[in-house]
Amino acid sequence: MEDKFIEVKQLYKTFHTKKQDIEVLKGIDLSVEKGEIYGIVGFSGAGKSTLVRCINRLEEPDSGSVKIGDKEITALGKAQLNEQRRKIGMIFQQFNLFDSMTVAQNIAYPLKLTGTSSKEADARVEEMLALVGLTEKKNAYPGELSGGQKQRVGIARALANRPDVLLSDEATSALDPQTTLSVLDLLKEINKKLGLTIILITHELEVIKYTCHRMAVMEDGKILEKGPVRDIFQNPECATARNFIGVYNKFRSDYWQEDAE
């Protein structure tokens, strides 16, 4: 690999609940190149969310390391971590916009954290609004927006500080297909335009096929298979990948409800 930008090594994480201990990550190794869109698929409960959340340490891994560029994320102290998090954007399935703030204020929130001057912040907000195509919604509240528009605000907010990395946890799972497509197009556009590295989690294979350069298949806390998306689609090695692609193909096959009779 020419340029390992994000490197995850031997990541382990166990959740301790009252009833039991659940080992959710069992030695994850992953490397993502600068400027690529990297997809991670897996069925529900595979540990995908936990994995990305370990990348910005919303979840503390038990052992292993995460490196972004030359920064060892897992070795940072609290203040340094907050500093570093400002360079890592994140978008969510439920958008997680702040209802008490307008669209512009939402986008400006991360800029306040970096102490951007208000003049510069205003300009950046305008730039981000233009990027996601929501200039006319500037003074609207999230409560007035559709799901797709909310996710666009989420993306604008995540990109406001010009991060190097964008983490996307099921960002399109709550959206209708058409809106999903437009959001994915937007992600592809910013990936090209800004050279942003994106880690994209989903359980929808078509999202990966449409958007990602490379992918990993995850199950039960382990990565079973990884490589260029086309290779895995054409030649899936593990049963889970075959299973995923089987389902994917069935949906796209010439199979109609009536045929079952």
């Binding site: 907050n82 998090r85 400002r86 994140m90 916009l97 702040f98 991360p110 983490l167």
Partner: peptide, 14 residues
């Protein structure tokens, strides 16, 4: 909603 707090945390808010 915990998600909002997480979003702020992920942005590096104290």
């Amino acid at each position: 909603d915990k998600g909002k707090i997480e979003a702020a945390k992920a942005m590096g808010s104290g």
